[in-house]
Amino acid sequence: MITKGQERCLYVFPVSEFARIASQLREQPMTHKAARAYSRVFFASAHDEVPDKQGRVTIPAHLREYAGLDRELVVIGASTRVEIWDRQAWDTYLAESEEDFAGIEEGVLPGGL
């Protein structure tokens, strides 16, 4: 499953992981405004893309536009998903995030490193 991600990238999930997230979102009360907003964007932009015989996947035009995908892409592993970024957007994000990453204290990883 491919859908809009945060920071203008695309998220790619195995069907089982997408179903797990969908289940968690369904458990949120309809009165939770942020959950409603997230669900709308997350599900409205989701596409079930099946790789062709050569393992290639077509990215729908509206998702390419959302993520600013043009010529050079970066595909990264992010735990239970893959993210697809425009090369320049990824380089900018990474440069801006390096200092934050270096300064992250305990609490992000259970038990520390």
Results as ranks from 00 to 15, higher is better:
residue 48 D to Q: 12
residue 59 I to Q: 01
residue 22 A to I: 00
residue 41 V to Y: 10
residue 16 S to C: 09
residue 100 D to K: 13
residue 24 Q to L: 13
residue 53 K to F: 05
residue 42 F to E: 01
residue 2 I to K: 01
residue 67 A to W: 13
residue 85 W to Y: 14
residue 96 E to V: 00
residue 75 V to M: 03
residue 45 S to H: 09
residue 69 L to W: 06
residue 14 P to I: 06
residue 74 V to K: 06
residue 44 A to H: 10
residue 47 H to T: 13
residue 4 K to R: 12
residue 11 Y to G: 05
residue 101 F to L: 15
residue 60 P to E: 12
residue 58 T to N: 07
residue 59 I to K: 07
residue 19 A to K: 08
residue 12 V to G: 04
residue 93 Y to G: 03
residue 61 A to K: 09
residue 82 V to K: 00
residue 99 E to S: 15
residue 107 G to F: 11
residue 5 G to Y: 03
residue 65 E to T: 12
residue 82 V to T: 14
residue 14 P to V: 05
residue 98 E to M: 14
residue 39 S to C: 09
residue 25 L to E: 01
residue 24 Q to C: 05
residue 42 F to G: 01
residue 110 P to V: 03
residue 111 G to N: 11
residue 1 M to S: 09
residue 16 S to D: 13
residue 46 A to N: 06
residue 44 A to E: 00
residue 77 G to C: 12
residue 84 I to L: 11
residue 13 F to L: 06
residue 65 E to L: 07
residue 6 Q to M: 14
residue 15 V to N: 05
residue 46 A to E: 12
residue 38 Y to K: 14
residue 59 I to P: 00
residue 69 L to M: 02
residue 71 R to G: 08
residue 31 T to I: 15
residue 43 F to V: 11
residue 21 I to F: 05
residue 41 V to Q: 12
residue 58 T to M: 15
residue 88 Q to M: 04
residue 11 Y to F: 11
residue 19 A to S: 11
residue 81 R to S: 08
residue 18 F to W: 08
residue 76 I to L: 10
residue 72 E to F: 10
residue 10 L to Y: 05
residue 113 L to V: 09
residue 65 E to N: 03
residue 52 D to Q: 01
residue 21 I to P: 00
residue 102 A to Y: 05
